[in-house]
């Protein structure tokens, strides 16, 4: 898929994952790369940017195995940003899907 396009969508992926519960960086990266082919390292700059923009807060939590983990938590601002992004995405994909459907029938 087009490279430019995917990076914008990555933001939505992270927001979707954090909507349900707080997660730590490694977990987010694995969840996304299970589904989409990405360079995993770029999720971290994205997380930092969205944190600085006030969409997430972070906290450290001890884990039973390994070092303490940095968790990301969606803020209220982040949640409303997520809603608007999700709506845009659905409108967009519905439109594209509709065109594909019509195209397939016509052929």
């Amino acid at each position: 898929m087009n490279v430019q396009f995917k990076k914008g969508v990555l933001e939505l992926c992270v927001l979707v994952l954090l909507d349900k519960k707080d997660r730590y960086g490694y977990e987010l990266v694995q969840k996304i790369s299970d589904q989409i082919d990405i360079s995993e390292g770029t999720v971290y700059p994205l997380l930092r940017r969205l944190t600085k923009e006030g969409y997430f807060t972070t906290y450290l939590k001890e884990s039973t195995e390994g070092p303490p983990r940095k968790y990301y938590k969606l803020t209220d601002v982040g949640r409303s940003y997520y809603q608007s992004l999700l709506e845009e995405w659905q409108e967009f994909t519905n439109g594209v899907n509709q065109l594909i459907k019509e195209g397939v029938i016509d052929d």
Partner: peptide, 30 residues
């Protein structure tokens, strides 16, 4: 620190350092 953490967790899952670095991609681009 974030990347240290990422490596530590990957290693705990049994991946090698090379595999983890490979999936992370180019440090220069990051």
């Amino acid at each position: 620190q974030d990347f240290e953490e990422h490596f530590a967790m990957g290693l705990a899952e049994g991946k090698t350092e090379e595999q983890i670095a490979e999936s992370l991609g180019s440090p220069a681009q990051i």
